[in-house]
Every structure is written in C-alpha cells, then in structure tokens.
Design a protein around this nucleic acid. Sequence first.
DNA 1: TGTACATCAGTGAACGCGCGTTCACTGATGTAC
DNA 2: TGTACATCAGTGAACGCGCGTTCACTGATGTAC
Lengths: 179, 179
Amino acid sequence: MEGRVRRSREEAALTRLAAVEMASRLFRERGVESVSVGEVMASLGMTAGGFYRAFESKEALAAEACAAAFAGSALASAPSAATMLRRYLSTAHRDAPADGCPLPALASDAAHQPAVRRAYTEGVRDALARIEALAPGADSKALLAGMVGALVIARAVDDEELSAAMLRETRRFWTEALP
Amino acid sequence: MEGRVRRSREEAALTRLAAVEMASRLFRERGVESVSVGEVMASLGMTAGGFYRAFESKEALAAEACAAAFAGSALASAPSAATMLRRYLSTAHRDAPADGCPLPALASDAAHQPAVRRAYTEGVRDALARIEALAPGADSKALLAGMVGALVIARAVDDEELSAAMLRETRRFWTEALP
DNA sequence: TGTACATCAGTGAACGCGCGTTCACTGATGTAC
DNA sequence: TGTACATCAGTGAACGCGCGTTCACTGATGTAC
C-alpha cells in the first residue's frame, strides 16, 4: 500500500496491546519459536519493521505475551472444583489452545526460554492457589499435575478416542477423589 | 580434514543407528525443531551432507528417533508401581531429559508434527499397558497424566523448591492412592 | 588369489529460504509561538 | 485559533545468519573375472 503512516500515540498504545494479545494467542497455539514477529504483525495488518518501535526484541514480546496469557487465564473464574475440572478437562479446551490455559500450552517454551520460564513459574503458583481456594484440603500439586498432564497428552495423541478417554478418566478420578 | 571417505556398509549401518540414537537424545533434551541436522551429524564427527545418504529428510529422522526413544524407555524395567513412581518422579529424571521418558519431553513436538505424533500415540498406549500391569485396578490414565504433568511442570519452573515439591507431592499422593 | 573396474559413504561448498533485526524514509500527529 | 516546525508510528527494502537440502567430487570398499 502507499504511505498511510503515523498514528496517534493512543492508537500506537492500542496497537501494542493488540500485539501482546495476538502473540499470547499464537504462542499458545503453536509455540513461541514457531511464530515469527512478521506473522504477529501481519495478523494486525502491519509490517514487521514497525514492531521494533514498540518492543525491544522478540524475547521481550515473549515475556509480555506469556505474562498476559497467565493473567487472562479462564481457570480463574470457575465457581467450584467440579466445574473447574469439567471445563479444564474438556475436548473444547483441548481444541482451543489459543484461548486456553498456558500451563500445558507453554510448558515446552518455558523449559527452554528464560523469559517464558519466569512468567510460567508465577502461573504455576497462581494455579495452585486457585485450586487450594476451590478445593481446600485437596492435594493441589498432584491435582494440577493431573490436569496439565491429561491436557498435554490429549493434545499430543493421534487417536481421538484415546485423547478423549485421557480427559474423561482423569476428570472422573479427580471428581471422585475430591472431598 | 582431507578425504578419508567411504566406509564399509557395516560401518555405514552403525553410523545410521548412532544418528538415530543421538537424535533421540538431543530431541528429548531440546525439542526436534531446536536441533539441526548439522548438529546431530557433528555430534557423530560427521558433516551434514552425508546425512541424506542414510535418511530421506529431517522429518524421517524425527519419526525414527522418536520411535527409538519410546522403544528404549527405562520405565519398562520397573519391578513395582512404587519403584516406578520413585524413579519417574525424581529430580534425577527431571534433570536428564535426554535419557528420560519421551512423553513429557516430546509432547510439544507431537502436538505440532505428524511424524512425531504417530510414535507418541503408541508410546502412550505402551505406558498405559505397563501401568496396568504394575498396578492392576489403578486408574491408569489419571496416574499417567499425573506423572507426565508433574515432570512437565517441574522442568518448566524457575524455582527449585517448587519444582521438587511438584515431584514429591505427586509421588506421595499416588503412592498412597494405589491399592 | 589377484587385478580392473564400478559403487557409493562421506565431504564440503553452494543453493534458496525464512528468520530477527536495522534503517532511510514518509507524512500525519503533536507542539511552540 | 492558526501557522511553522519537530516528532515519530509505521513502511518496505535490506542485512546477516542458520537452516534443510543438493550436488560434484573423492577414494576406499565391493564385485566381476
């Protein structure tokens, strides 16, 4: 296109927020390393060059986008432990990683990239606190491990029946195991 | 170096096996996409060009290397469910992904690459069968989810204490929960 | 068994490509008077 | 409020780099006689 160029500062700030939000979704869907800066900006109708007016590097975006993913996690709003388990261990959650919990989606990135790792650690602490609030007395770490593991395996497997069974059986076990 | 070149067919076959084994370790350690063909071959003291006499593509190597990782999984040799839990949910296993179970290490690759996905699915079926053999009557899917999830989180987290606690509490819960 | 030739495992340079990042430039926005 | 100038958000081309893959070449291995 020709040169429609400078936006107002307000618009630029909104663009920045939109980039973080878009990156947070794309990173959960496909992993930080598989999504390019150019793709994030193109999704916003912009070119890659402008990215560096708003962010210092891709790593800085990764840190912000992951923190944003944890901050906006839907797990926060469940009214009971049973509801949390039903929503978390659902095929809908499995099939929508971009909108879902970052713990299964970003585990591999966190294991290999320090910027993601920091946000991830806080996300684990928050998740444990939420589980303890919803299910006092439950073994929160074993429960979180089961939820995250079931989703990770359900997303990695080729067989729809096996995938659904991982979610269903894990949900059933923990629904019965809770006080 | 100068041209010491052609090896015997026997040597070439050993080189091929060594490449699969090396790739299987490197892929578990850092993920398939973060390890280059050149790096795998350099680890064997060779150049990248020769790779394509033995393999059709990097994707073909990924499929073979992942299948090999599952075939050689140490989980197979545990004499009891308690021993399996102790070994699997240990900091030693957490800190040695190259030698460890592929289920936590390759989950992200399986979710995004069809060649890995197929081997992964068989790996999940095998793991469930082994758990059912060691702990008849246990909820094998919930248990596998807990083991894999605890290791995935323990490897993704910045805080040694939190990381060790994830393993320890998950192990304690399941040791008590088993028949 | 010995010799002459064909094969082919591995080398190393080159390729096309996509990536993260830089930069000169544009023209609307923001500011000073 | 209106004008003149400075700023700077975003463009688009270019960069250096590492990747997966190809290919002409080498010389030891394998084979035919």
